[in-house]
């Protein structure tokens, strides 16, 4: 391309656009760009900061338990295991999941204490967790985690962050009790969680 021609074209007045037309066109561009950016921000949850997101649950755990680099935010203390799950095949009538057909499925797992403190004492009343990763023969994985409480105190994920309280911190323990009581009252359906745990342990 010859430079002179392009220079001429560059200096050309921008057509016969009136001032109003120009403003309208710039507005259209602004609306399109802002619209797409706005939708993106909405999809990512930035426009609804109080809506529950995975990050808000994790952040609550960190706020309550403090930061312990290298450890999980919840069920921080635990021990890993490896082994296999041996199925006798009797559950095939209940589920078509391949783990239940007779045979061995290799697993890795982790036994843990509930709560975000990696150095928590192994108090009998502390909730225990058991996480298992089944390595299925087709390369699929079944990852599951369970705790030893008979019922989970939060009836939905929406109310979970309100119920997160340190279980073993002496300074925060009074606050913790208050948390639990107000939490279960709000739920209105369950007894105080520690009462359930105690009942379960004494059985």
């Amino acid at each position: 391309m010859n430079q002179t021609k392009s220079d001429q074209l560059l200096q050309m007045p921008r057509g016969q656009l009136t001032r109003t037309s120009l403003i309208t066109r710039f507005t259209v561009i602004a609306i399109v760009i802002a619209g797409i950016a706005g939708l993106f921000a909405y999809a990512g949850g930035w426009l609804t900061p109080h809506a529950l997101k995975p990050a808000s649950i994790i952040n609550t755990f960190q706020k309550v338990n403090g930061l312990h680099p290298g450890f999980r935010r919840n069920h921080a203390k635990g021990v890993c295991v490896s082994g296999y799950f041996e199925s006798n095949g009797r559950a095939v009538t209940l589920s078509k999941a391949s783990v239940f057909s007779p045979g061995r499925v290799p697993i890795i797992g982790r036994f843990s204490l509930a709560g975000g403190h990696p150095d928590a004492a192994d108090a009998p009343r502390t909730i225990r967790g058991m996480a298992i990763l089944f390595k299925l023969s087709d390369g699929e994985e079944w990852r599951t985690a369970m705790t030893n409480i008979p019922v989970f105190t939060a009836k939905s994920a929406q109310v979970l962050p309100d119920g997160i309280a340190p279980s073993d911190d002496p300074i925060l323990s009074t606050r913790s009790a208050a948390y639990s009581v107000s939490f279960t009252r709000r739920e209105g359906e369950l007894k105080e969680p520690s009462a359930i745990s105690t009942a379960e342990t004494e059985k």
């Binding site: 921008r14 057509g15 066109r25 259209v28 561009i29 399109v32 760009i33």
Partner: peptide, 20 residues
């Protein structure tokens, strides 16, 4: 990637609607 896309789209819209 999203920001580069927005810049790309802005430039094309500017050329199409303003410079024509």
């Amino acid at each position: 990637l999203f920001l580069t896309f927005l810049a790309h789209l802005s430039a094309v819209l500017f050329h199409t609607l303003i410079i024509r």
